[in-house]
Design a protein around this nucleic acid. Structure first.
Lengths: 352, 352
DNA sequence: CGAAGTTTGGAAAGCGCTTTCCAATATATG
DNA sequence: CATATATTGGAAAGCGCTTTCCAAACTTCG
């Protein structure tokens, strides 16, 4: 239907080979006069190369697949932004898939597997896995990715992977969480509860481990470790559960604590979004932040920086992570070697 | 490199045609016994169809292109989420492009044009334009899209378009803004300033028009209409500029206003993110919300709903918008006919 | 001025699939 | 049982490009 190279060649009075050489970056460059004629013809006809045909002929597609959990989650969308930026610089387009979406054609396979399979079908040059479902590693997924890698595909995963041949980009989840907790301890906090998020998500797990590491190192026992959803609602629910379990009420200390002046409990949430949900829960119970209860999150999501009170958190360079992942996937030679590092951000939510 | 259909056919002892027919949904279905043999062979070999080759042969790619301004912006990522969901249901993959990214190969063309051209090159079955740059309609863009449509591509644009043959999905920007302003006026607000955002973005413009429509209808003159960026920083700056222009200081009325008790000024921002930036600005000046100054936004971004004070805004069903856009692009016959409608959401930021 | 070397354009063979015809069976009808 | 009618599998012609050879046309020197 569209204008094809043959028409351009005919119009310019040259062969297919020549037209191809001048229009689509080949090693050989035809004479200037001819090249101009071809370009003029292409322009006039509005020729746009068929990337599918090129892919077939070149056996490389210029596509990179990104699988996230939920693109509407600012964590993933920030990463996607970085991936996209780097992909564009490498002349690649990004194919996006989200694993939170049900409607796949084949209900018996997981969303991850469907997404990866689709990418493999489109022969993306690389696949970036930004999901971190822990669950007993679907063997079909590993098999598919293994074959993909064997056939020359690159895969980079955020977090640890058991897939042989896959690059993994480790995030300072555990270290960051520990650093954050340590900073809070250093500033005098002594009573903590952890809003742990889902136990089957690696990201959440590592962060919780980090929190607990730091607490243990300081000889502190967490008052509670409450699992829940990895979103605002999850934070809200977990916070409420926490308050009830610890008997925290407005205007007083924890009930089971023998009274006295409220020392304040600091809620460590596995991510920023949960932390905000927790704050909403605290407010709904009439508790003040940070006077009555303190809250800390993780990620330092850009869009959430206007929140008041400012959220104490651990900043992850999300966009940079996406960029690095893409770099690793598309040009591993030149990818910056340094790992990802974050930064403790103290704001008012934990009494900065 | 990968396993190809011919190998599967050989292994199953059938012809290429038969293998193709059983594996990739054809009108004709070979006998059950044969089909099973083929499927078994495919399974054993780990065959994954080459979508590029299929696209070439079928002249349809199963790809839909989505161009947004900035995927990290929750407005766009929510829309993307909807698009993705619907695309998956229609068996399509989504190719994502952001126009906020510089590094394109050809600096002389706009990011929009590059993105659209890339999509055309990949022969996406449809293109969804979720950007709304007003600027004097790049003729090259129109030309490219025109050809694309003529060749059977579908394009749906959010907001008005001049591209003939393109579907346009109109959002209630103007109407919603007017409704929001009216609701505020009904509740007794009488002094307004508008944080207008960028003048060259259709979305922002329409919203501002809506605000002004409603004010005019009520015989109210806005105290100020301040342009600026369409992001948090833009809201911050515009709010500051506004405060200075109107002489608003903590603990008092507007300076140029003859004193008296502060009636309170309501800042109407062109979107939620700007509104939050504005709130940060107000706080930095020691002004209380809503006691001293009120703020309203637009969109009702889900992630921002935990903000305190709750943001008065106009809710747009962003995910639904994305879904509808994809529906319109991929299955126009069955797309729901009803337009998009929003809803005024009154929260404490404007003294709900 | 002819042999050897260097460019340069073109013919044609794929890349991995789909799909139209065809030929060969299997089934139904008189 | 012969003939007409469905079914079914396969051969081969594309889909729109890239790229390897080749051959023709120029250069360059001895």
């Amino acid at each position: 239907m569209s204008v094809k190279l043959a028409e351009v060649a005919r119009q310019a009075g040259v062969s297919l080979a020549t037209a191809s050489r001048v229009l689509n970056g080949s090693a050989r460059t035809p004479a200037a006069a001819i090249a101009d004629r071809v370009r003029a013809a292409a322009d006039e006809l509005g020729y746009v190369a068929n990337a599918q045909a090129q892919a077939l002929a070149r056996s490389t597609t210029g596509l990179v697949g990104l699988v996230v959990h939920d693109i509407a989650d600012p964590y993933f969308s920030a990463i996607a932004h970085g991936v996209q930026e780097s992909a564009l610089q490498h002349g690649h387009q990004v194919l996006l898939a989200g694993t939170d979406i049900a409607g796949g054609a084949e209900p018996e396979r997981s969303a991850e597997l469907s997404a990866v399979n689709a990418f493999i079908s489109y022969r993306t040059d690389a696949i970036i896995l930004a999901v971190s479902r822990l669950k007993e590693e679907d063997p079909r997924l590993s098999a598919a990715l293994g074959r993909y890698i064997k056939n020359g595909g690159r895969v980079v995963a955020l977090g640890a992977t058991t897939i042989p041949g896959a690059q993994s980009l480790t995030l300072p989840n555990r270290e960051g969480a520990a650093a954050l907790a340590r900073a809070l301890i250093d500033r005098g906090h002594a009573r903590f509860a952890v809003l742990a998020g889902p136990g089957d998500r690696n990201t959440a797990r590592r962060r919780v481990e980090g929190f607990l590491d730091a607490l243990a190192a300081a000889g502190i026992d967490p008052l509670a470790v409450v699992p829940g959803g990895f979103n605002s609602q999850g934070g809200f629910d977990a916070a409420l559960e926490c308050l009830d379990a610890l008997g925290i009420r407005p205007g007083g200390a924890a009930a089971g604590d023998g009274g006295g002046v409220a020392a304040g409990v600091c809620l460590l949430a596995a991510n920023d979004v949960m932390a905000l949900g927790a704050m909403t829960a605290l407010r709904s119970r009439g508790l003040r932040i940070p006077q009555d209860v303190q809250v800390a999150g993780f990620d330092d999501i850009p869009t959430l920086r206007d929140h008041s009170p400012g959220l104490t958190t651990y900043r992850l360079p999300l966009k940079g992570i996406g960029r690095l992942a893409a770099e690793l996937a598309l040009d591993p030679e030149h990818a910056p070697g340094a790992g990802i590092t974050g930064e403790v951000i103290l704001r008012e939510s934990a009494g900065a």
